[in-house]
C-alpha cells in the first residue's frame, strides 16, 4: 500500500512491543513519615518552613524556595475545601466507568499545597469549588501506609 494512502495505523504491519519493567518506589524520608502517620494515627501532617512561612502538604524534607531543611512537622486539620475538581467518566485506558469518579484537589487552611483524592457520599452535580470536605479513613486494621488509606473526602456542613 502506498505510504501516502495510509490513514489507519491498523492497516499497516506494525511491530509490537512492550517495556518489560515495573516500578518499585520507596516513599523516601518525608513520605515514610507522612504515610506512617496516616496509617498509625490517622492524621495528615505538614512540614513548616518558618523563614518562608509556608506549610507543605504533602510534607517535604526541604523548602523548595529557600532550600532550608524542614524539621518542624505539624498536624493539619482533616477538614478542607475543594480547590478544584473533575468528574471522570473514563478510566486510564479510556474505558467508560459504570459510576463516574469525582476527583478533587483538596486544600487546607494555612497550607501550601493539598491532597488529590476522591470525593464520596456526594453526587457529581452537588460538588462545587469551595465545598467544605472532611477526610474519611479506612479502619485502622485495613490501612497499609498508602494514599488509599484515606477512603475519600466527603462533604460536611459548616
Amino acid at each position: 500500500m502506498p505510504v501516502d494512502k495510509i490513514t489507519q495505523v491498523s492497516q499497516t504491519k506494525p511491530w509490537h512491543g512492550q517495556i518489560p519493567v515495573y516500578g518499585q518506589y520507596t516513599y523516601g524520608i518525608a513520605g515514610e513519615r507522612f504515610f506512617r502517620e496516616i496509617k498509625a494515627n490517622g492524621r495528615i501532617m505538614g512540614a513548616k518552613c518558618s523563614s518562608c512561612n509556608l506549610t507543605y502538604v504533602p510534607p517535604r524534607i526541604y523548602c523548595e524556595r529557600c532550600f532550608s531543611e524542614l524539621t518542624e512537622w505539624l498536624q493539619i486539620p482533616d477538614r478542607g475545601a475543594v480547590h478544584t475538581f473533575t468528574v471522570s467518566h473514563v478510566d486510564l485506558d479510556g474505558n467508560r466507568l459504570d459510576e463516574p469518579l469525582i476527583v478533587a484537589f483538596v486544600e487546607f487552611d494555612g497550607v501550601h499545597g493539598g491532597i488529590v483524592h476522591r470525593l464520596g457520599e456526594v453526587e457529581p452535580d452537588q460538588v462545587y469549588i469551595g465545598m467544605p470536605v472532611e477526610m474519611r479513613l479506612k479502619s485502622k486494621a485495613k490501612r497499609t501506609g498508602s494514599i488509599l488509606d484515606i477512603s475519600y473526602f466527603k462533604p460536611i456542613r459548616v
Binding site: G28, I29, Y62, F67
Partner: peptide, 18 residues
C-alpha cells in the same frame, strides 16, 4: 538502593554543593 526519593537525593546534594 537509597531510602530517599530522587528529589530528596537531589536536594541533599544541591544544598551540600551550595
Amino acid at each position: 538502593r537509597a531510602h530517599e526519593t530522587g528529589k530528596e537525593l537531589a536536594w541533599e546534594t544541591s544544598r551540600m554543593a551550595l
